[in-house]
Amino acid sequence: MMLDPLLLLLHVAGVVVWVGGMFFAYMCLRPEAATQLEPPPRLRLWRGVLARFFTWVWVAVAAVLASGLLLIGRAGFAAAPLNQHLMLLLGLVMMAIFVYVVFVPYAALARGVEGADWKGAGAALGRIRQLVGTNLVLGLLTIALATAGQLLG
């Protein structure tokens, strides 16, 4: 089947963009920005960085969801191994968290930066940090299920 490798490539590329981006933002950019920048420029930086990143995450989410559903559907949902069902479940939870982040705390961050409400923007960024940390853990767990999860049976 020539389609399966292309779907898998699309799926893995989406995961790399999304989970890799979260890892970079959470583990590298966040701690350095906190030590280098005062709140106003730091919050403006995060607003811009997240706006760019979220555009790519929307594309990645669409790619991961579409390719994942096609891959599991081609094999048959009932015949799919447990790790694939768990990957789908975790992926849907991650997508729900992402949508919430964009429309609630990120929107509050953007409003806070626009209105120079640094305390409110900082609180929104703190909530985003927590949720991205959660999604990062879920993403890494999903990758573990994709690779070593076949041991589940």
Results as ranks from 00 to 15, higher is better:
R127E: 12
M95N: 11
C28K: 13
A124K: 05
Q150K: 11
H85Q: 13
G149N: 07
A148N: 03
D4V: 15
T142V: 03
A13R: 02
N135H: 00
F98N: 06
L45G: 02
A62D: 10
A110R: 15
V15S: 01
F103V: 15
P31Q: 12
S67T: 05
A123E: 13
E114T: 10
L89F: 14
G48I: 05
P81D: 05
W18N: 02
G14M: 02
A116C: 08
A124P: 03
R44F: 02
G122E: 07
L37R: 06
L82Q: 10
L141V: 14
L37V: 09
N83S: 01
M1R: 14
A116R: 15
A148I: 11
D117R: 11
P40S: 11
M27I: 12
M94I: 04
A79D: 11
P105Q: 06
Q84D: 15
A144C: 02
A66V: 14
F53S: 03
A60T: 03
G14K: 02
G91S: 09
A108M: 01
A79E: 12
W56M: 09
W46D: 14
W46Y: 14
A75R: 15
A13P: 11
L152S: 02
G122F: 05
A75Q: 15
P81Y: 03
L82A: 12
V132L: 10
R52D: 01
T142E: 02
A79T: 07
